[in-house]
Design a protein around this nucleic acid. Structure first.
Length: 300
DNA sequence: GATCCGTGGAC
DNA sequence: TGTCCAAGGAT
């Protein structure tokens, strides 16, 4: 295995972007919120939302004190609104289980709603400076190319953590930098579509490059079409409820002109199941949390 | 392990 | 214009 850590550290020192969560003393709560927002949402779209969020809710307890509806509304158009619900839930868990302090232990982090292998280790490493492999889609692509000689990574696997751990130096601070550098390289140089190998610090040791960029077979699955999908219908419902803030909307007026009535009903029903909306007295609204008995009535 | 889950920008 | 992609996680 080629030595990747040293060139990554050197490159990162000169090329790291100045991002909010890399500021000194950004804090574990800020790191956690940023990681939630960055789950499948590009950096450029996250930054303004992140700052507004932390401005409004500087601690987990501040967020937990409000209804989930407020989190979903503040989430705005970041996409995947379940993440807002999960972040609110995680904030409540942090307040109740951890004295309003974001935990440092990976297993404690993994036990929080909406936190998986990536986010748990990202918080432990970037907020607390501990020694763990942090593996996101960028890192997986860098390792796939530089080490495995493949153009694209295979499906995510727990083995990715082992692979990254093998690259990390023993030194705790250096390991954190290597984690960040692998992600940064994948995000800015070793990109999915047109990698800029001429600017890559790993070009000399990259197996994929050395072997002439073989087409190793792309196992990626095509993303389902969005136009006309259930997801689009759900998105339209959520947008309508967000814009109707803070009031409830008569159920029958919700995306009433949606072309496919079955799909429209299915979207609302699934959102209720997910806890993203609640129905009561023929009205639909964002989740208010525990407001008393019978605050939620099944649709059918 | 395969699927589902939003939204918008880049090419 | 359509396709691809984006600091994943839950089921």
């Amino acid at each position: 295995m080629p030595e990747l850590a040293a060139p990554l550290v050197e490159w990162y020192g000169r090329n790291a972007r100045d991002l909010p969560w890399r500021r000194e003393g950004f804090g574990a709560w800020g790191t956690l919120v940023s990681e939630f927002m960055l789950q499948q949402t590009p950096v450029a779209r996250v930054i303004p939302h992140l700052e507004a969020w932390l401005d409004r809710w500087p601690t987990p307890g501040a967020l937990a004190a409000e209804a989930p509806a407020e989190a979903v509304r503040q989430w705005a158009n970041l996409g995947y609104p379940r993440r807002a619900l999960w972040l609110h839930r995680a904030a409540t868990e942090i307040r109740d289980r951890h004295g309003d302090v974001v935990p440092r232990d990976v297993d404690a982090l993994l036990a929080l709603t909406g936190i998986g292998d990536y986010t748990a280790r990202a918080v432990a490493v970037f907020a607390y400076g501990d020694h763990h492999p942090v593996v996101d889609t960028n890192t997986r692509r860098v390792l796939a190319r530089a080490v495995a000689g493949r153009g694209q990574p295979g499906p995510p696997s727990r083995r990715d953590l082992v692979d990254m751990a093998a690259v990390l130096p023993d030194d705790v601070e250096a390991a954190a930098v290597v984690n960040a550098a692998a992600m940064e390289l994948g995000a800015t140089v070793c990109t999915a579509r047109s990698p800029r190998c001429e600017a890559c610090p790993l070009a000399d040791v990259c197996r994929w490059r050395a072997e002439g960029y073989p087409d190793t077979g792309d196992t990626r699955r095509r993303q389902a079409k969005y136009e006309g999908s259930d997801r689009q219908a759900r998105g339209a419902v959520m947008r309508m409820l967000r814009d109707a803030a803070p009031s409830a909307v008569p159920l029958e007026t919700i995306i009433a002109d949606w072309p496919d009535r079955r799909q429209r009903d299915r979207a609302i029903d699934s959102l209720v199941v997910d806890g993203l909306v609640e129905a009561s007295d023929g009205l639909l609204h964002l989740p208010r949390g525990r407001t008393g008995p019978d605050s939620t009535i099944p649709l059918s």
